[in-house]
C-alpha cells in the first residue's frame, strides 16, 4: 500500500497560518490502513487544531470529513457538499489524493498534512517496510520474489556488491536500522529453489524510461474504456 506520515504539527500550523475556516480531509484507503490519515486521524488533527486555536484566542472553524478514496472523482463527489463549505482543505491523503482534491476543487486552497513516503507492507503491526519502487519493469521473476530495486541500497541488478557482510548491507537505514542485503536474500532464495543458474546470467541495464525518470506516466486500458 501507499504509506504516509503526518507532518509535524508545527509545519501544519505554518501552512494554516491566518486561515479561519479549515476542513481536515482524511482518506479511508491506504493512509487509513497505515494509521496516518483515516477518519480517526482526521478527527484527531481537527481537535488538535481547534484546541490550539482556542489556546491562542483565535477563531477557527474546523471540521473533518473522510473520503472512501480521495484519489477518485466519484468519492470526491461524495464529499463535495462538505468541501464546498470550506475555503481551505488540509488533506491527510497520499500525494495522489491531495492532488485529486486540488484538481476537483480548483477554487479551494488544498494543503498537505502528511508526507507520502513509500509503497510498503506492514511487516508487523504498526511497522511498515518499503517493498516496491514502482519502476515499471518488474524483475521479481528472476530475483526470487525479492526486489533489488528498493531492497538493495544501490538498486543493483547484478549483485551483491562488496558491501555485503554476513547477510547485511554496509548501509544502514534512516533510523540506523540494519538492512539485510537484498542480493544475499536473492542468492539464498534462488539456491533454495534450485534456480542458481539465474545468478550466472548478467542482467543488462534496465529501461528506466518506464520508471519516473521518463516523465509522468500514463496508463490506458483500451479494453476497459467506456464505449
Amino acid at each position: 500500500m501507499i504509506t504516509a506520515e503526518r507532518k509535524p504539527f508545527e509545519e501544519i500550523l505554518e501552512l494554516l497560518e491566518g486561515k479561519e475556516k479549515v476542513l481536515v480531509a482524511g482518506c479511508e484507503t491506504c493512509v487509513a490502513v497505515c494509521l496516518t490519515g483515516g477518519e480517526k486521524e482526521a478527527e484527531i488533527l481537527a481537535a488538535e487544531l481547534s484546541i490550539k486555536a482556542k489556546e491562542d484566542g483565535r477563531t477557527l472553524d474546523v471540521d473533518h470529513i473522510s473520503a472512501i478514496r480521495q484519489c477518485e472523482w466519484e468519492y470526491l463527489d461524495a464529499i463535495a457538499e462538505k468541501v464546498e463549505q470550506y475555503p481551505v482543505v488540509i488533506s491527510m491523503a497520499c500525494g495522489i489524493g491531495i492532488q485529486s482534491m486540488a484538481e476537483r476543487f480548483p477554487e479551494k486552497l488544498v494543503l498537505p498534512a502528511v508526507n507520502t513516503n513509500m509503497l510498503g507492507m506492514p511487516q508487523e503491526h504498526a511497522v511498515w517496510i518499503e517493498r516496491c519502487g514502482a519502476c515499471g519493469d518488474c524483475v521479481l521473476g528472476v530475483t526470487g520474489g525479492i526486489c533489488p530495486i528498493v531492497r538493495c541500497s544501490k538498486s543493483l541488478l547484478n549483485g551483491p556488491c562488496g558491501g555485503s557482510h554476513d547477510g547485511l548491507c554496509e548501509v544502514t537505514g534512516p533510523n540506523k536500522e540494519e538492512i539485510p542485503c537484498a542480493w544475499q536474500l536473492i542468492h539464498d532464495k534462488l539456491i533454495a529453489q534450485g534456480r542458481q543458474d539465474l545468478l550466472m546470467k548478467v542482467t543488462p541495464p534496465k529501461d528506466w524510461s518506464k520508471s519516473n525518470s521518463g516523465g509522468p506516466r500514463t496508463m490506458v486500458k483500451e479494453e476497459a474504456k467506456p464505449v
Binding site: K40, E43, I44, A47, E48, S50, I51, K54
Partner: peptide
C-alpha cells in the same frame, strides 16, 4: 478509550 475522547474533553 480513544485519543479523540481525551482531546474532545479538553477541547
Amino acid at each position: 478509550l480513544e485519543i479523540i475522547h481525551l482531546l474532545k474533553a479538553l477541547e
